[in-house]
Lab assay of single mutants.
Amino acid sequence: MDALKSAGRALIRSPSLAKQSWGGGGRHRKLPENWTDTRETLLEGMLFSLKYLGMTLVEQPKGEELSAAAIKRIVATAKASGKKLQKVTLKVSPRGIILTDNLTNQLIENVSIYRISYCTADKMHDKVFAYIAQSQHNQSLECHAFLCTKRKMAQAVTLTVAQAFKVAFEFWQVSKEEKEKRDKASQEGGDVLGARQDCTPPLKSLVATGNLLDLEETAKAPLSTVSANTTNMDEVPRPQALSGSSVVWELDDGLDEAFSRLAQSRTNPQVLDTGLTAQDMHYAQCLSPVDWDKPDSSGTEQDDLFSF
């Protein structure tokens, strides 16, 4: 819950932080000083300027060897085509990944977070970031790969997607708890209302004896509580940590079903599988986004697919 609360507080303090972009060759504004600060901008989305290598189908939802083989196929196909790589912007948030063309600003792909089953910074092609997700059109699994400016960037994108998945799962947990509370309150309110109706004398007997209905007592009954809980029953509950912020979080049926399955089948359902080692994760978390744009010590960066 700490990640969720800190993310909400950060967004309320400075929503404009989320509009910064990394990996864009110096076009961005001043960047936060450390990885923790940038992680807090996830709610509205972190932007990464990358190059799209392509996509291939895979048979399993996750796995280092599986993704490595898929990336190898994608890279080989991209090299064989001889075409310049498409420059894209990857927007990562707890909602998922939005992929747009840098030149036309046209939407290429919009992947809900619950469809993503794996992401990684490839070991062999260490400047490549990739994720595996279920197609929104059918049940097939797709591996999408992107060329980053350097290994640090690939690791940073991988960690960002993993963190977005974690925050999304926490949102789901909060929403589920809130819905259970509202359902319980609604049920209790309905029981109270039913009890009051059972003990209320029939209207005919009131008229016969000349008694008047006590409207004041009726007004004191917990009807307002019942209506408050039943009027918006169809509205999706939102985490309290975000009250007053500009973010509107809505959970669709697909996300609810997917996270429910994860909660039942996995020990740590909030953790998205990645190909990063503990050492890689520690190294990337210690980086400032400013470091992502620094040239690798191995030599001059080449803006070309064939540089790796």
Rank of each mutant, 00 (worst) to 15 (best):
D2A: 06
D2Q: 09
L4W: 04
A7Q: 07
R9E: 03
R9P: 12
L11I: 03
I12N: 11
I12K: 02
Q20L: 05
S21F: 02
W22I: 10
G25L: 10
R27I: 09
L31D: 03
N34A: 13
W35H: 12
W35I: 07
E40H: 12
L42V: 14
G45D: 15
G45S: 06
L47K: 08
F48E: 05
S49D: 04
L50S: 12
M55F: 13
L57I: 13
L57V: 01
V58D: 07
V58I: 15
Q60Y: 12
A70K: 08
R73S: 09
I74D: 09
K79D: 05
S81M: 14
K83A: 06
K84E: 12
L85Y: 12
K87V: 09
T89W: 12
T89H: 02
K91F: 04
V92I: 06
P94E: 02
T100L: 12
L103S: 12
T104C: 02
Q106G: 05
N110V: 01
I113K: 01
Y114A: 02
R115I: 07
S117N: 01
S117K: 10
Y118T: 14
K123L: 11
K123S: 13
H125Y: 10
K127F: 14
V128T: 08
F129A: 09
A130D: 10
I132T: 13
Q134C: 03
L141K: 09
C148A: 04
C148R: 00
K150I: 03
M153F: 06
M153L: 08
A154R: 12
T158L: 02
T158C: 05
T158M: 15
A162Q: 01
A164K: 05
E170F: 02
F171H: 07
S175P: 03
E177R: 15
E178L: 02
K181R: 10
D183Q: 00
K184R: 13
E188N: 06
G189S: 02
G189L: 01
G189N: 05
Q197L: 04
D198V: 04
D198Y: 07
L203C: 06
E217C: 05
L223R: 13
A228H: 03
N229K: 09
T230R: 08
T230L: 13
N232D: 14
N232V: 10
N232R: 09
M233S: 07
V236E: 06
V236L: 09
V236F: 07
A241T: 06
L242M: 04
S243K: 07
S245Y: 10
S246E: 07
S246R: 08
E250W: 06
E257M: 01
A258E: 09
A258T: 00
F259M: 03
R261N: 08
R261F: 07
R261W: 01
R261C: 03
Q270H: 08
V271H: 02
G275K: 02
G275P: 05
T277R: 00
T277F: 06
A278H: 09
D280P: 09
D280E: 04
Y283N: 09
V290P: 01
D293Y: 15
K294L: 04
D296E: 13
S297V: 02
G299Q: 04
L305S: 08
